[in-house]
Simulated scan of single mutants.
Amino acid sequence: MKRFWGLILFISLLSCEKERTNRNPFLQEIGFQFELNLNLPLYSPLTNSGSSIYVGNTQVGTRGAFVTNTGFDVFRVFEASCPNHAPNECSTMNLNGIVATCSCDDFQYSTITGQMLNRPDDGARYYDMLEYRAAYNGGTIVIISN
């Protein structure tokens, strides 16, 4: 009976998989916290569902962040630096509606999901946008780094 339980324990230890991270090697993980007051004209577009803005403040992320109102008081926040390049002179993405485009290579990303929209089928590793946590509290969005 001891052998049976020993075998079960051995098999369960072998079946445990170490957690693998999907860390982006191009973007550093920096600590910050920033608040957006939706009563201010600069951030008032976020009162509408489906709208996105670029927050280019140097206190937010590496190259700023894109904030999107996805509806029902849910906000998604993504790093504005292209996730497939080390930060450089062309890596700050441009926002057009809910699509962010990297000017280095014209890769496009959704500011609702953070996913790359035109992923090449060349077998290379591509990263989606780096997401930051956001909490909404009565007219204020608090953005916190991961």
Rank of each mutant, 00 (worst) to 15 (best):
V142A: 08
P41C: 07
V99P: 00
I98A: 08
L130E: 13
L130W: 00
Q33C: 02
L36D: 08
I141C: 10
C82F: 02
L40E: 15
E29S: 13
Y127G: 02
S91F: 04
V99T: 14
H85C: 13
F107D: 12
D121Q: 13
Y136L: 01
T62K: 08
F66Y: 13
I30V: 13
N118Y: 02
S49F: 05
Y54A: 06
G31H: 12
C90T: 15
G123Y: 01
F32I: 12
A134F: 07
F66N: 03
C82L: 02
S44L: 12
N57S: 15
R119D: 11
D73W: 08
N39P: 00
V55L: 06
T101F: 02
L46C: 09
I53P: 06
Q28H: 06
F75P: 01
N84I: 08
S51A: 14
R119A: 14
M129K: 02
T92V: 12
D73P: 00
P87G: 13
M116K: 11
E131K: 09
V74A: 08
V74C: 02
S103D: 13
D105P: 00
S81P: 14
M129N: 10
A100E: 01
N118R: 05
M93V: 08
G71E: 03
N118F: 10
V142C: 03
A135V: 15
Y126I: 00
T58R: 11
L42A: 15
A134D: 09
V142R: 13
G71R: 07
N94S: 14
G64S: 07
V67W: 10
Y109W: 11
T68L: 01
L36C: 09
Y43L: 09
L46N: 08
T111V: 11
E35T: 11
L36W: 05
Q108H: 10
N48K: 15
S103R: 12
I112K: 15
N84K: 03
M129Y: 03
D105C: 09
G31A: 13
F75G: 01
F75E: 00
V60I: 12
Y127K: 04
Q28G: 11
A65I: 02
S49I: 08
R119M: 12
N94M: 10
C104S: 11
A65T: 03
T47R: 15
I141Y: 07
N94A: 15
Y109G: 07
R133F: 12
M116D: 01
N37C: 10
N118V: 04
G114E: 11
V142H: 00
N94V: 14
Y132R: 04
A135S: 13
G61R: 07
D106K: 13
P41H: 02
Y136W: 06
P41G: 03
R133G: 14
L95G: 07
Q28A: 14
N69R: 01
Y132A: 04
Y43P: 11
M116L: 14
I30P: 00
G61K: 07
F78V: 11
Y132C: 07
D106I: 12
M129L: 15
F75L: 00
S52N: 03
G31M: 10
N39Y: 14
F107R: 05
T70D: 05
T101D: 07
T68M: 04
E29A: 11
Y136H: 01
I53F: 11
Y43D: 09
